[in-house]
């Protein structure tokens, strides 16, 4: 909380829920989650460089139940941030500013991220699981 004594403007709980609020907040949340997930990319590369035993250890942890749950969450976060990020880039270019378009593109981001996540994990399962 601010260490100033100034009055605060109304916050989210004051307003009626709209899908654009959710896509905006979730974009931030997934961004922070993915920033933490960068550590996984570094860990994977370091273990691959360090040798066979090291890489096997990394794969074992990534393929364990908690590892898979985290990977699933990160995969959805990645696809959501990707879809909604493309939406934001298009909006930055000046497209889709009508309220109806804004609502529709919000839902499109959510649905597309779920579809992509399902497709990736369906591929993983069809190829004998992730472990």
């Amino acid at each position: 909380m601010a260490d100033t004594q100034r009055p605060l403007s109304p916050h989210v709980q004051i307003y009626k829920w709209q899908v654009q609020m959710t896509t905006s907040i979730v974009h931030r949340a997934t961004g922070v989650a993915l920033a933490v997930g960068t550590l996984l990319v570094v860990a994977g590369l370091l273990h691959l460089a360090a040798g066979e035993a090291s890489y096997a250890h990394f794969k074992e942890i990534a393929g364990s139940p908690p590892g898979l749950i985290l990977l699933f969450g990160w995969s959805w976060a990645l696809f959501y941030h990707l879809c909604n990020g493309v939406r934001h880039l298009l909006q930055d270019a000046g497209f889709g500013f009508e309220i109806a378009q804004f609502v529709r593109s919000s839902w499109l981001s959510i649905v597309a991220s779920i579809v992509l996540t399902v497709l990736v994990w369906a591929y993983v399962l069809m190829h004998g699981g992730a472990a």
Partner: peptide, 20 residues
């Protein structure tokens, strides 16, 4: 962000290829 749209999709595809 624009770079990561392309590189991110490529990265996911590469990781999926290396699954097993």
């Amino acid at each position: 962000a624009a770079a990561l749209v392309l590189l991110g999709l490529w990265f996911v595809a590469t990781v999926l290829c290396l699954l097993h």
